[in-house]
Structure formats: C-alpha cells, structure tokens
Amino acid sequence: MRSRPAEAPKTPAAIGLSLVAVFWLGLIILLPLVTVLFEASKAGVEPFLAAVAEPDTIAAIQLTLLVAAIAVPLNAIFGIAAAWCITRFEFKGKGLLLTIIDLPFTISPVIAGLVWMLLFGAQGWFGAWLRLNDIHIVFALPGLVLATVLVTLPFVARELIPLMNDQGTDEEVAARTLGARGWDIFFRITLPNIKWALLYGVLLCTARAMGEFGAVSVVSGHIRGQTNTLPLQIEILYNQYEAVAAFACASILAGLALITLLLKSVLEWRFAGELAANRRH
C-alpha cells in the first residue's frame, strides 16, 4: 500500500492542531522527564554517583534487569503462540481469548499482584503446601516475575495479532506445498515476516516490565537489597526524604526506558529499507 507523502501543515487548523499536539507532549511527557533529570543532577555529580553506588540500589537495578530478562522472553513466546493460534485457526472462544489477553491492560496492577498473594501467599490457597516444601514464591524472585509477566502479557501478542491477520496464511501454505516442515515454515517464513512487530512488542514489553510498580509492590515484601526492584526502591527513598537518591534512581530507570526506545529507533533506521519493503507488499 502506497500513501501520499505527508507535507508540512499549512492551513490554520492544521497548524493549530500540530501546536496543541506539541504543547501537550511537552507538558505531559517532556517536562516531567526533564524535571527528573534536572532534580537528579541538581546536587552535583558526586551525590548522584554515591546514591547510585549504594548496594541496595545496585541490587535493585540488578533485580529489575533480571525480572525483565525472565518475564519478557516468557511473554514473547506466549505472544507468538497466542497470535499464531488466533490468526491461523478458527475455533470457538476466540473472542473470549482475545478479551482475556487484553485483561491485564484493563485491570489495576495492584489486583494483578493480589491474585498471586491469594494463590501463593502465606494465607493463600497453596500457602501451607509451599511453606511445607520450603518453596518461596511471593516475597521472592518467582513472585516478582509472575506479577510482571501478568501485567506485561498483552504487549507482544497485541503487536503480532493485527500484523499476522493482515499477512494471512498464504505464504505459509505455499511453503508447505514446497515441502517445508512445521519448524522450517516457522523459522524461515513466519518469524522473518513478523520480526519487526515482534521486536517492537518485546521492546515495549521490556520498558513496561522494568517500570512495573503496582503488582510488584504487592508481591515484593519490600526486602531491601533482596526483593526491591528499581521502582520500589525509588518509592522507599522518596518516602525517606532522600530526594537526591530518589531522583538519581528515577533518572536511571528513565534512562533504561530511553535506551530501549533508542534501540528501537536505531533498528528502525538501520533497516528502514527492509521495513518499507515488508510493508509495501
């Protein structure tokens, strides 16, 4: 599909709309971001570095990255499987499945944390059994991962479903008639066709996973240096009036998100030609 190249806004209405968009973006996104970086740097470089070098903060950064590193691949695999199943087969309850995939977008993250407490907490359904077998889920890494997985579940699937619907099954069927086996079809046809949407979904999922607060807060237990992720660490520091340290951590978290977005932009720029070829078909 080829669309007319867009031009710079000319009419008063177009200019007005553009100004509103830019103003709003500046007010709602850029201003807070600049504030975080400004507050963090106000005290100077040394307090900033000292705050970051704090063992609890380093532990929080490590934990945040670890949780994302486990949760994101899980959701990527689930996302591919769900999108495959929804776009390649007709079955009863498809609409329901789509709705369920969207559920994490609509329910509060706090609830997403609470359900794991209800299941695996000390008073939860499996609490007694877990204690008996010395398995730690809540107030430990597994709980953090579960909460993050639940909250970030839709990102990859939601990116892939419209694309795979659009692309249809013709290429896969053609590959089959040419003698390709299931995994050959997946790795040589399906995956290359969805790789950009997959990457985009994974990056969004990563950014969201690292920033997750509500669900993680419920299951974390807030054990310093052990179960505190970066967002939780920021809250604790802020509540203790350690403003500089809080903003230092906040700027790191914002930095991680920015790196994610930068990565996406770099990839888009680097493979612009291929992306365009994929879309034009």
Partner: peptide
C-alpha cells in the same frame, strides 16, 4: 501450486 495472491515470500 501457484496461488491467486502469488504468496511470494516477501522477505
């Protein structure tokens, strides 16, 4: 098999 949509592998 030649498909109506050709189904060429776009990548």
């Amino acid at each position: 098999m030649v498909f109506q949509s050709y189904a060429l592998f776009r990548h």
